[in-house]
């Protein structure tokens, strides 16, 4: 399982969710030191839920940077609510993280 760092902070009525996902995000065009093309390996789908209900769905291409960073904002979250993020990549790997909303 790849590492994911998450934080969800409630301030002034809005919860700011930040996530940093550990992933190579290879485009399939890069050459390594031996001049071999590194196969594409990138996250295609990211879904986020608040207490199990969908709040955000993202489709990504190869243009998202290595070790993807994402911030989004939730209106209806309360302290203690659970925010979860799950991703799936083009090789069938997946990962997820969950965190409770805290007060800023």
């Amino acid at each position: 399982m790849r590492d994911m760092k998450m934080r969800a902070q409630l301030k002034a009525g809005i919860t700011e969710v930040k996530a940093l996902i550990s992933h190579p995000m290879e485009t399939g065009r890069r050459k390594n030191a031996l001049d071999e093309t590194v196969p594409a390996h990138f996250i295609q789908l990211v879904t986020a839920t608040l207490n199990g209900k969908p709040v955000l769905e993202a489709q990504w291409g190869t243009g998202v940077s290595k070790n993807p960073y994402l911030t989004f904002y939730l209106r209806d979250a309360k302290v203690g609510d659970k925010v979860a993020i799950t991703w799936h990549d083009n090789r069938g790997e997946s990962g997820s993280g969950e965190i409770a909303v805290t007060a800023a």
């Binding site: 809005i14 986020a48 608040l50 209900k53 969908p54 709040v55 955000l56 769905e57 993202a58 489709q59 990504w60 291409g61 243009g63 998202v64 940077s65 993807p68 960073y69 994402l70 911030t71 989004f72 904002y73 939730l74 209106r75 209806d76 979250a77």
Partner: peptide
């Protein structure tokens, strides 16, 4: 690069 689809009380804003 990316397409973000919002629902269920998510603000229409992202940072990436």
């Amino acid at each position: 690069i990316a397409n973000f689809i919002f629902s269920g009380g998510a603000e229409p804003a992202v940072v990436t």
